[in-house]
Every structure is written in C-alpha cells, then in structure tokens.
Design a protein around this nucleic acid. Structure first.
Length: 477
RNA sequence: GGUCCCAUCGUCUAGCGGUCAGGACACCAGGUUUUCAUCCUGGCAACCCGGGUUCAAUUCCCGGUGGGAUCACCA
C-alpha cells in the first residue's frame, strides 16, 4: 500500500522545534516511499483557536521546505482538511456507534463529572468515568456530550515503530468523550475518523499519546477499522530542567529562529539529529539526504535535550555550504540600515566576503555595515587589543603612515594588495598579528571582517586610505 | 497514587557478550611567517546502583534508583 502520512497541528499560534519534528518525521516517511504527505488542521478546540495561527503554520512549513501534497490550500480527494469543516463526517460515524450500542449520551453536567473526579483523586485512584456509567442514558442529540462505551475491559498489546512492543493495563480503558457539547468531536475521536477517511497509513505524534492508545485501539475495533502503523516520538526536552520543550520555558518559536537568521536547512538538520543518526559519523544532512537515510528503527527512545549551541554550529556550517545566490536570497531582509540601500551587485560582493564568518544571518549588519558606511572610530578597539595595547600612539601612527604610503602606489587588486601587505611586514618590522590587526580595525571597527586584501579591495582605494587617515587623525587628537 | 515508557562523556549520540567504550557540539591548549572568524591538531570528559546468566557483561534477565508521560467536553 502506498504510504500516506500526515501532520495535523492545532492552530494555537505557536510553532516550536518539537512541533516541527512532528511534521518532519511523517514528511520523510512519505517521501522515502514516494507516498503522500497530508496537512490537516485540527481546529476543534474553539477556546484555544488563534486566528492567524494556521497561516503561520503553513508559512513555517513552506519556509522549511516541507511542502504537503494534500491538505488545506492545496486540496485533495479527501477534503475538507479542516476539522471544523468535517462535522457531518464525525456525526455519521458517531451514529454508527450509537446504533451498535457502543456510544451513549452523557447526562451529567460538567460539575457533576468534576465531583466524581475529585472523589477518585481523594481516594488516590485514577478517575474512571465508566464507574459512573448511567443506567438509562437519554437518547443522544446534538448539544449533549457523547461518550464511547467500552465493552471489553482487557489488557491491550500493540507495536510501535519507534518504541517497540507496548502494552497498557485495562485500567486505562474508559468511556471517553467522542462529541463535545458544542457539537465538535474531541481529538480522540476526530483523528481516528480522519486518518481512516484520508487513508493514512501511519500515525505520527508525541509519546504523550501512548497512554491513550488502549482507548484508541478499542475505538478502531468498534468502528471496524484496521489500525494504522503507530509512530510515537519522544519529546524534545528543554535546555535545562527535565521538562519537555514548551512555550512557558521560554522556548523560541520557529519564527523567532527564522528572524534571528537561522537557515531552514540548519533547523531541519538539527531536528533530525535530535534522537536520530544514520549509524555513521555523518552529521550534516540535507533534506534529500534525510529522505534517503532516515529510519524509524534508529530513532532514540529517550527524550533528547535541545542544545542551542549545536544549532548555532550547524547554522554556521550551512551558511558556509549554501550556494551564494541562495544565501543572498535568504539574507535579503537581514542587511543593516546602509547595506539595505546598496545595489544587489555590491551586496553580493560583500556577502561573499563574509560568508564563512557568519554564524547567523542576524550577524550580517555588524559584519558588513562598515562596507556601506564609514564606521564610527572607536580607539578602545585598538588600545585594548592584545597585540596593539603595548604600542604608543606614535608607534601606531607610524605604522599607519608607512602603510598608507605603500598602499597609495599599490594596484588595487587582491593579489597585489596581498603582496604589498607582505612587504609592509618586513618594512615595518612588525608581526602580522600587530600590523594587520591595526589595519583591519582601522578600516572596519568591526569584530570580524574578511581577509585584509579582500576587505581593502571591496572597500576601494580612496575609501580605504581615507579610513586609515581618519584613524591617524583620531590618534593625534 | 494507578498505568505506561526511558536510562553511555555537561549535551546529541555509536555500540547490539570479548572495544584502548568511537564520533559530534561545548570547553581548554596549540598550529596555519595574513589579524578576528573559518580550518587543522591535541586535551578534558561517560557505561545510574545491586543481584543474577556466562569463561566473559556497557551489552541479556530481575530488582532498586532516577527521569519522563498520562489519568480533560485540550490536543
């Protein structure tokens, strides 16, 4: 059978790293079998619904390159793909259950159920609604909660592609809600109906659903459905503490990482390596590589901790190995105030110069603004420099003067500049670390910059010499 | 509390009875007669504990301990 997987997020307005992994895994499974990746929106909770959340999810997925084959916006044979638009489907399946005597109306008010629950808690026992099952429930109609009726209270066994063989005690089986009083289905019911109707072959989700598996298994049976392949993914844990990654721990959303200048390739690479490896020492994977190599049986069963330092390292790796034209496109919105106004040609030239120095695109302004505007002179960068601090101002000025003299007559090309700079070393009798640090700072006043000849070349002769002069003037003052 | 799951350097992990327990990030120290960054080299650093099984356990089994998940008209 053709593989059909889905990502089924709730539009609650916040997409973090862990959520994206829930999209990546099914995407990879679908693609490696030439299958179909579906995007379904699970918007049955009207209280948590956030208006533009769906747009953010779609945008994030597309940015990452995880394009879905079927689902919202793109359509498909099993639509609609938004649960609130599928109400009649759920009602239809619910009525089947009622007819078979496997579902019944819940006559209690939420307050009454809450009392049962509190009593159970007080007795230190898990709350089981089925212990309070009404003897003669009213005929169900829309507006009343509909519950599933468990008929076989037994231990359940099943297989999970990641977690292996699992089981659950009969105590976890309960008469859970199928349809809420607002007429919308619960996740527990809706996802099973939808997965079946959309012919999903795999269910991928976080391990928090394992404890509900016994109930789902019972429901598949009651509905006469063949259970799909189960894939429960361990959580991504927060950088500190022992909690799973979440908004309240200050976990950044994917949009935030994007805004800070992280590349989608780095995000995906980082994500797939959290809890998975291909058995070799390879640690750089493109999306295509992942499709080829990904294997559920090699996914770790324990939760993996989120390590932002590693993400940063991977981002640097990806910036360096990304084609300059593509990187230029990614960098579009990251230029500084002056860089933004420069021509594309000029920006491309500068970007190529700093490509291997960038860790995130967010570093772009501090690394490039001095190419587009005269930097503000900050003599402390010279006086505090570990190589330069021991020189007197006069010595520094002399070095700059000698350099200026030389550069005035140098042909302005990287190779001839290179040569001139090397000659300057012998002429000034200074070490590279000394002379070059001084020149680098004098023309850039930035923490990092490209190789000196290249920096000079891109800056141009007149501008370079003017900046050296400006520093000399400042040292004189 | 019931139920279920998990357990190798600080972090991500390799390992599937015999290994000097390997790699990567981070950190530290050097190096590339061009600085900073990159890059290269080296260093630091781990099998949760106790029983079994076995000639031999990080590896298999049991028990502890520790951690996680769940017990909603949320997903």
């Amino acid at each position: 059978m053709k593989t059909r997987t889905r990502f089924a997020p709730s539009p609650t307005g916040y997409v973090h790293i862990g959520n994206i992994r829930s999209a990546l895994f099914p995407y990879l499974l679908a693609k490696q079998n030439k299958g179909t990746f579906i995007l379904r929106i699970e918007d049955t909770d009207q209280n948590r619904f956030v208006a533009d959340a769906e747009a953010i999810i779609l945008d994030t997925l597309r940015w990452l390159g995880l394009q879905w084959d079927e689902g919202v916006e793109v359509g498909g044979p099993f639509g609609p793909y938004r649960q609130t638009e599928r109400r009649d489907h759920y009602i239809k399946w619910a009525e089947k259950l009622i007819k078979k005597g496997l579902a019944y109306a819940d006559p209690y008010t939420p307050e009454e159920v809450q009392k049962f629950r509190q009593a159970a808690e007080k007795a230190k026992k898990p709350f089981l609604y089925r212990n309070h099952r009404p003897e003669n429930p009213p005929k169900w109609e829309l507006g009343m909660p509909l519950r599933f009726k468990q008929t076989k209270i037994e231990r359940k066994y099943w297989h999970d592609e990641i977690m292996g063989d699992l089981e659950a005690g009969a105590e976890t089986l309960d008469d859970f809600i199928l349809i809420k009083a607002d007429g919308l289905p619960t996740y527990n019911f809706a996802h099973i109906v939808d997965d079946a109707e959309m012919e999903c072959t795999h269910v991928t989700r976080g391990i928090e659903y394992i404890s509900s598996m016994a109930n789902y298994l019972a429901l598949y049976e009651a509905l006469g459905l063949k259970p799909p392949i189960f894939v429960h993914m361990p959580h991504v844990m927060a950088p500190s503490g022992n909690k799973k990654l979440g908004k309240r721990d200050g976990a950044k959303s994917v949009q935030e990482y994007r805004a800070e200048g992280y590349l989608p390739e780095a995000m995906l690479n980082f994500l797939v390596m959290l809890g998975w490896n291909d058995g070799t020492t390879t640690d750089i994977f493109s999306l295509d590589d992942m499709v080829k190599q990904f294997d559920l049986t090699r996914v770790q069963r324990a939760g993996a901790r989120f390590d932002e330092k590693r993400l940063l390292w991977l981002n640097g790796q990806w910036i360096r190995r990304t084609d300059i034209a593509k990187l230029f496109n990614y960098a579009k919105d990251f230029w500084g105030e002056n860089g933004q106004k420069a021509t594309d040609e000029r920006k491309l030239e500068v970007l190529a110069g700093v490509q291997e120095r960038l860790k995130t695109l967010g570093d772009l302004p501090t690394l490039t603004e001095y190419f587009f505007t005269t930097p503000k002179i900050d003599l402390s960068m010279i006086t505090d420099n570990k190589f330069l601090s021991r020189f007197s101002k006069d010595e520094l000025i002399t070095m700059l003067e000698v350099a200026t003299l030389k550069l005035k007559t140098t042909e302005w090309q990287t190779d001839s500049l290179q040569e001139a700079l090397n000659q300057l070393l012998t002429e000034t009798a200074r070490k590279p670390a000394e002379l070059f640090s001084l020149l680098r700072i004098a023309v850039s006043y930035a923490p990092f910059s490209p190789e000196l000849p290249r920096t000079f070349a891109v800056l141009g002769q007149a501008e370079s010499l003017a900046r050296l002069q400006a520093t000399m003037d400042a040292l004189h003052a």
